[in-house]
Amino acid sequence: MIRLFPALALALALPAMAAAAPCGNTSAGFDNWKRAFAAEAQQAGVGPRGLQALAAVQYSNGTIGADRKQTGVRYSLNDFMRIRGVDAIVNIGRKKKAANPAFYAAIEQRYGVPAGVLLAIHGMESGFGSTFGKYHVLSSNATVAYDCRRSEFFTRHLLAALTLVDRGWLDPNARGAAHGEIGHTQFLAGNVLAYGQDGDGNGRVDLYNLTDAMASTANFLRQKGWQPGQSYAEGSRNFRVLNNWNAATVYQQAIAIAGARIDG
């Protein structure tokens, strides 16, 4: 049985709460911010496990370095597909679909999202689970929540991540991508709460579990407007839905092309 857990209001509909804890653009004020933020998090409903995990986070210079280097995707489609190894993603994706056709058919039947799209995303985001990222998820999320540039946006996801720890859905020591992205398809924590699916029916949403990750990814796309049985080629409505996954046009194009090749 696949279960949908509702979004947590504190993580998705907070009124600019981050303003109470002073943001900063260097590590100098991080410890003071962390103490102030802990009080806010407790008021917002974060429990003992989440607060204990917050106390252990550290300022991540690696996260800030990666964040400052972001310039957007400027490659041509052909270069992007070559750099991201789309041919290999297609070959591996076909094998994974052939090895477990019933699993992907069940996902498509429930959510309307075909295997090719999910496998293309899986390959692009984590190399089919071969690399979840090297960054401490909570420290990365806390660092960009503290950073003044996008504090409000990442505060919501940090509160969500602490809530996942409270629920036992996220290991406090979990590793992910530079901005706190989680698991096989690199969800931000707030999206786990909003769109996460308990694909294996064990009462938890664990994005490091493939079944939960694939169900959650399909649910995300469906909730964003995916139309079952319709084309996802460039120019289609489903193609536009991929913008909600990643705003880079070449990324959307690569998913659509790889997905179509995997699905045959």
Rank of each mutant, 00 (worst) to 15 (best):
A7N: 08
A7F: 06
A11H: 06
L12V: 13
L14A: 15
A16M: 07
A18Q: 08
A20H: 00
N25I: 05
T26V: 13
G29W: 09
D31G: 05
D31H: 05
N32A: 15
G50H: 02
Q52L: 04
Y59V: 09
Y59W: 13
A66F: 07
K69N: 12
T71A: 14
G72T: 02
V73M: 07
V73S: 08
S76W: 00
D87F: 01
A88W: 09
N91T: 15
I92A: 14
R94H: 08
A99C: 04
F103W: 00
A105D: 15
R110W: 00
Y111G: 00
V113F: 06
P114E: 14
G116Y: 13
V117W: 08
M124Y: 07
S126K: 07
G129Q: 13
G129T: 10
G133D: 10
N141K: 11
S151Q: 14
R156M: 14
L159Q: 04
D166A: 03
W169F: 08
A178Y: 15
E181C: 12
G190M: 13
G190H: 12
N191E: 12
G203L: 12
G203P: 11
V205C: 10
L207T: 07
Y208K: 09
N209V: 04
N209I: 04
A213H: 09
M214C: 07
A215C: 08
S216M: 05
S216W: 06
R222K: 01
K224S: 02
K224F: 05
Y232V: 09
S236H: 13
L242R: 04
L242H: 05
N243S: 13
N246A: 13
A248S: 13
V250C: 07
Q252W: 02
Q253C: 04
A258N: 11
G259Q: 15
A260L: 15
A260I: 11
G264L: 07
